[in-house]
């Protein structure tokens, strides 16, 4: 299901997806974020993540590459940054159909927890959520997502290999060459 293009309110590369979540929250965004990790090596296939918001609070998520939805889509997106992020504003009505698909829905604090690992932002998001959603919490499901992440040996190996490459590149830059193992 496609989302309307709406009005672009922000487009930038961020090191931490928490920045985009905090911006959406602070602006009370009704619309969605398009999140695209920049390191192709770490992507689960191609594609990007979509995360919708109502009044700054996350509602639903999907990943166009893996086709997964909800918390699974967030887990697919949880890789080291940077990310290219777009925030788009749309009318609440334009999100209704997307939100009706229950398997897309995520706990209000799940993106802050899973993508940013930021407990303070998760608390702030829960506090901003409508009363009916305040009891939702990512805690119960988030450990499952963390375990799923750790079961993905290919992704973890890619993260480790990428870090070793970075360390080697920067060693030259910083004059650590002689220490390289």
């Amino acid at each position: 299901m496609s989302l309307p293009s709406g009005t672009l309110v922000l487009s930038r590369v961020v090191g931490d997806p928490g920045d985009a979540l905090a911006t959406a929250l602070d602006r009370g965004l009704t619309g969605y974020a398009v999140l695209e990790p920049q390191d192709a090596l770490l992507l689960d296939g191609t594609g990007e993540g979509r995360l919708t918001f109502e009044d700054g609070v996350p509602v639903a998520a999907g990943h166009t590459g893996t086709g997964r939805r909800g918390a699974d889509a967030l887990a697919d997106l949880a890789v080291p940054g940077p990310y290219r992020v777009e925030l788009r504003s749309v009318s609440a009505g334009a999100l209704e159909a997307y939100h009706r698909e229950a398997d897309r829905r995520v706990a209000a604090d799940a993106p802050a927890d899973l993508l940013a690992g930021d407990a303070a932002l998760a608390d702030r998001t829960r506090a901003a959520a409508p009363t009916s959603r305040r009891d939702e919490t990512a805690d119960a499901g988030s450990m499952d997502a963390v375990e799923a992440f750790l079961d993905d040996e290919e992704k973890i190996d890619a993260i480790r290999e990428r870090a070793r490459e970075e360390a080697r590149e920067r060693a030259e830059q910083w004059g650590f060459d002689e220490t390289l193992e």
Partner: peptide
């Protein structure tokens, strides 16, 4: 025990 923290922790180890 979060995905971002584990992923960054692994990066520290590899560095």
């Amino acid at each position: 025990p979060t995905i971002p923290a584990l992923s960054d922790g692994l990066k520290v180890q590899e560095y």
